[in-house]
C-alpha cells in the first residue's frame, strides 16, 4: 500500500511493507486457503490489514499454524493479531451467541484485522519513529 520496498529477510524492519487485503479477495476462499493466504503475506515480512474478521475457528487455526512454523521458518517468532471492530467485541460475542456469525465473519466489513510478524511489531514498538520514516520514504 505505502511502502513498496520488499524482499528483506523476515524480521528485518527495513524490508517490511504493509499490505491491504480487501474482503472481496478472501470472500470466496475456504478456511484453508484463507489461512494460507494470510500466512503467506505475513511470512513475506508484511503487516497485513484485512478488511473484515475471521471466524473464531479460523483464528485458532491461524494460531496453531503459526505455532507449527516457529522454529521451522528462520527468524519467525509468531504473529501479533488485533481486531478492531466498530461494533466492539461485546457486539461480536453477543452475535456469536445468537448464531449470526456468518454475517460477521469476513462479512463484518466494519471490522479490521491486523496481523503482522511479531518481530516487526516489536521493532516498531521499540522505535515508533522508525516506521514513520520508512512510510514517508
Amino acid at each position: 500500500m505505502t511502502n513498496k520496498k520488499r524482499g528483506g529477510s523476515l524480521g528485518r524492519i527495513k524490508g517490511f511493507a504493509i499490505q491491504f487485503l480487501p474482503y472481496s479477495e478472501i470472500k470466496d476462499l475456504d478456511s484453508n486457503r484463507r489461512i494460507k493466504k494470510i500466512l503467506g503475506v505475513v511470512l513475506g515480512n508484511n503487516i497485513l490489514i484485512l478488511q473484515g474478521r475471521l471466524y473464531p475457528e479460523e483464528e485458532t487455526r491461524l494460531i496453531g499454524d503459526t505455532m507449527a512454523m516457529i522454529g521451522h521458518v528462520k527468524h519467525f517468532k509468531g504473529i501479533e493479531l488485533a481486531v478492531i471492530s466498530g461494533n466492539g467485541q461485546e457486539g461480536f460475542i453477543e452475535n456469536l451467541k445468537r448464531g449470526i456469525v456468518n454475517v460477521l465473519s469476513g462479512g463484518d466489513l466494519g471490522a479490521i484485522t491486523i496481523i503482522g510478524p511479531a518481530t516487526i511489531v516489536k521493532e516498531i514498538k521499540k522505535n515508533p519513529k522508525k516506521i514513520e520514516l520508512l512510510l514517508n520514504k
Partner: peptide, 11 residues
Amino acid sequence: VNITIIGNLVA
C-alpha cells in the same frame, strides 16, 4: 488471544 478463546467457546 482472550477474545479468540472466548469466541471459540461460544461457537
